[in-house]
Simulated scan of single mutants.
Amino acid sequence: MPMPDQDPAPTDESGVIETVRAAGEVDPHRLDFPPVPNGVDYLVSVVHHLTAAEVGPRDIKYAVLHLQAATEVLLKARLVREHWSLVFDDPGKATERRFRSGDFKSCTTTEAVTRLRNIADVSITDQADSALKDLARDRNALQHFGLSHDARAVEARAGRVLDFLVRFLDDVLLPGFSLAEVAAIASDVGRIRDGLSSIHAFVTERMRRLQPDLTGHEERTVACYSCGQLAMIADGERNRCLFCNTNEATKYLIVEYLLQSLHNDGVRVRACPRCQRELLVDGIRSASGPDPVSFCFGCATRIPDTAPDAPGEPR
């Protein structure tokens, strides 16, 4: 006999069917979005907007906003499972009354990632962390200042975060769910997976079509800071991404990498030992090989690790 606090586990096929049927019944007059179903619902909206027949500015706007909302909800749902006080901006001032009423300032997404890693022992890669921070920057720019981005870039960037969140659901959140809880979101999770497959297929097909234009330029082709695809060709003065059509002068592009270096330990901007200009970026993904490289956007070339540092630069 099950314990009083446990859901009885269906022991036959009819029991499973009844559990799924009950989980799918929704009261149209009741607003009921527990954290994980709420986050999943946001992801359904993201997929809807990014897989529209014509992805327009409004689709981009709500895809970014809802993807950030989903990220915050799902990461913090796992923190609550560890302990409800961890979602407070200052856990030392947490009270159960304020938690139950929702009357508190919650931690940032960046802090949530740190607490999941350090306290809940949840594995989140640096690559995933970087994608989440890029998303937060997009959301803040859109919410407060307006955001102008090519739809292809947004779709590719969103695909990386979606991919992380689907794996986060599978590996971190769903294992702690009952059958009824899984059944309640199964349909929506299926729609998200289908949408993610569509986004990946779009990215793969577009990169395939671009290969003839990229062939022969591997040594000066790097990952685009905007869409993340290995499709940005540098020429020393300008840097054009064939995937998302970003076309940035080097003097402005280097500012993007300076900003990245603030939250990514693998990226560093320094003086180039060849041209002496501070346009050398360490930790760049390049089409020339699988490992991050040091690439000078002034020379438009990879700088070998054995090259001497520029005067005044640490070795």
Rank of each mutant, 00 (worst) to 15 (best):
I303N: 03
P311A: 12
N247L: 15
G15V: 11
I192F: 10
D89L: 12
V122Q: 03
F104W: 02
V40Q: 11
L132W: 00
P273Q: 01
T19F: 01
P175V: 00
V267T: 13
L79H: 12
V47T: 00
P311C: 09
R100V: 11
A112K: 02
V87K: 01
Q211A: 11
A53R: 14
I284C: 06
H48M: 09
T301D: 08
A120Y: 01
E256H: 14
L116K: 07
R21H: 09
T250W: 01
A201V: 09
A231I: 02
D12K: 03
F104E: 12
R238K: 12
N140F: 00
L142C: 07
E82N: 04
D126P: 02
H149A: 15
D121Q: 12
V154R: 01
A307Y: 06
A128L: 04
R268A: 06
A77H: 00
A234C: 15
A53D: 15
S197V: 15
V255P: 01
D213H: 06
H48I: 12
I17L: 13
R315K: 14
K61Y: 06
D129G: 15
E219T: 01
L258V: 08
R21V: 11
E18I: 10
Y252E: 10
L116S: 05
L43C: 02
P314F: 11
L67K: 11
K133T: 11
